[in-house]
């Protein structure tokens, strides 16, 4: 009995002393942290992808609080959560969310095995960074996709995967959060984080080759030869040609699809548009006769699954 009592009392006393010490220590050495940081972090996706440019979600939350104290949330965007999350963050901090439009990663190369014949064989580590340092690549195009999947490895959301048929990466629109990790991982800067566009519809030049037309022609069936036809046909000045490659400014593009028709190499792709109705069959038949077979299967493939998700996004 006595033994039990002694044990209980001594242990109790040790516990009490420890508790007092801990209490005093926590008071004395307390570090003040803005409670709003935790609140903000709570609404963030906690994927810690780094897409915002800060080290993880907590880092971003801290940056947001600081920015709010400085007066504006401009430039702060969680690409994963998008506008919805930023609104919540702004609500917590009593600010107005900076307006943002949803973005998405796009692969600007269409050099599939068919379009871009392989003239050599790469033998080494399956890494784009290393393949890029080895040589110009397996094809005549020294700008196109290397197909080793560094972007796939970089994606934390499983939103990008290699299509074994084409040897090119494909972005899953539903999963892509536009964090930009893939764009950073690509040694050839083929992946661009672009505006998603109205209803997810957008026009893309699927080529980044800066070589002259003749060289591109030899290397790839669907490479941009910088002929300038798209630039001419665009009524909104959205298309510019620099360094032998065409680029569409998504901010200015009005999705008229004229450039797509004009492009003799079918480098310009219209994504998520409904399939073409009879119209083009009558009018520009003369120019691109071989156009349709190449393009027709390509466009709808991406389209069907993506469309619904786009609507969901908008209804939010």
């Amino acid at each position: 009995m006595n033994v039990i009592l002694i044990a209980v009392i001594s242990l109790g006393a040790i516990g009490l002393i420890a508790a007092i010490v801990l209490y005093l220590a926590s008071k004395k050495f307390a570090v003040y942290e803005d409670p709003r940081i935790n609140q903000v972090a709570a609404v963030l996706p906690q994927a810690n992808c780094g897409g915002c440019g800060y080290p993880g979600c907590n880092g971003f939350a801290g940056a947001c609080v600081k920015a709010a104290d400085a007066g504006s949330l401009e430039g702060k965007l969680c690409p994963v959560g998008g506008a919805a999350v930023m609104e919540k963050v702004a609500g917590i901090l009593g600010m107005q969310a900076a307006e943002t439009e949803p973005r998405i990663a796009v692969v600007r190369c269409n050099g599939s095995c068919e379009n871009r014949p392989r003239i050599a064989e790469y033998d080494g580590v399956r890494s784009c960074a290393i393949a890029n340092a080895t040589s110009g690549g397996e094809t005549g195009c020294t700008y196109g996709c290397l197909g080793c999947g560094d972007c796939v490895a970089a994606c934390k959301f499983g939103a990008i995967h290699m299509n074994p048929e084409t040897g090119l990466p494909e972005v899953d629109e539903e999963k892509c959060t536009a964090c930009g990790a893939c764009a950073k991982a690509c040694p050839r800067m083929i992946i661009e984080i672009r505006l998603k566009g109205k209803k997810g519809r957008r026009m893309i030049v699927k080529c980044v080759n800066k070589d002259k037309g003749a060289v591109v022609n030899k290397a790839c069936a669907v490479g941009c030869i910088a002929c300038g036809k798209c630039e001419k046909v665009c009524a909104f000045g959205a298309i510019t040609i620099a360094n032998n490659v065409s680029y569409i400014d998504a901010e200015k593009c009005k999705l008229c699809r004229k450039c797509e028709e004009a492009c003799p190499k079918h480098t310009i792709h219209a994504i998520n548009f409904p399939p073409r109705k009879p119209k083009p069959e009558v009018a520009p038949e003369a120019a691109p006769a071989t156009a349709k077979p190449v393009e027709a299967p390509a466009t709808p493939k991406v389209e069907t699954p993506a469309k619904e998700e786009v609507k969901v996004n908008e209804s939010k």
Partner: peptide
């Protein structure tokens, strides 16, 4: 060319 040339680092 008979076969594709192999590209690899030294």
């Amino acid at each position: 060319m008979a076969n594709k040339l192999t590209l690899s680092l030294s």
